[in-house]
């Protein structure tokens, strides 16, 4: 197996900063918007973004929630292992809000499909956007496309992408692992 560094910690920081600027361009002071991180790994990116936005927009705290999609998966009973659920915490009304769903890696699109379903259990948002740190192009199994992309990569299905966070791993970095075939 070969591993290639896609983003080092400096590029990681710059990318998240750029994503925040793009969000502010579209959502201004976030008065009618909310950020929702997808469990389990999207929440690290979402928390970083919210911390950064809160520092830049001190007058309006950004609405932030975390959403678990386990019970909405389309592969329940088809997987070898049972998916372990995580906590969902959305303590505001999403009705009529512009919601940005945040995940670390966009691959087949099935997680996002489940995320959209899960989100609608909390009301009818005015608009839903998707932000992802890594977009694995050409791997989509559903017609889903991100509005904000940190970094797009080409990879085959057998490859894996790992996003490391200094909160839980050694440092901030993104790696592409390829198997020699």
């Amino acid at each position: 197996m070969q591993s290639r560094l896609i983003l080092n910690s400096q590029a990681f920081e710059i990318t998240i900063r750029r994503l925040c600027y793009q969000l502010i361009e579209n959502h201004h002071n976030f008065e009618h918007s909310a950020i929702i991180g997808l469990q389990p790994r999207g929440i690290f990116l979402a928390r970083r973004i919210v911390t950064m936005l809160d520092a830049w927009l001190p007058n309006t705290p950004v609405l932030y929630g975390e959403l678990d999609i386990t019970f909405y998966r389309d592969d329940f009973r088809r997987r070898a292992e049972v998916a372990k659920a995580n906590a969902t915490k959305i303590d505001f009304i999403i009705e009529d809000k512009k919601v940005v769903l945040v995940d670390d890696v966009l691959f087949t699109g099935r997680t996002i499909r489940a995320g959209l379903d899960a989100l609608l259990a909390f009301g009818r948002p005015r608009k839903v956007e998707l932000l992802t740190l890594i977009d694995r192009k050409f791997a989509r199994q559903l017609p889903i496309s991100p509005n904000y992309t940190g970094h797009a990569i080409d990879s085959i299905d057998a490859d894996t992408v790992s996003v490391q966070w200094k909160e839980t791993d050694l440092n901030d970095s993104v790696w592409l692992h390829t198997t020699n075939t």
């Binding site: 998966r73 969902t88 379903d117 899960a118």
Partner: peptide, 16 residues
């Protein structure tokens, strides 16, 4: 605990 949160949502139903 996860399901307790689910049944306190506005829509108390999941498709599992």
């Amino acid at each position: 605990e996860n399901f307790k949160e689910v049944i306190n949502r506005p829509i108390k139903k999941v498709p599992s």
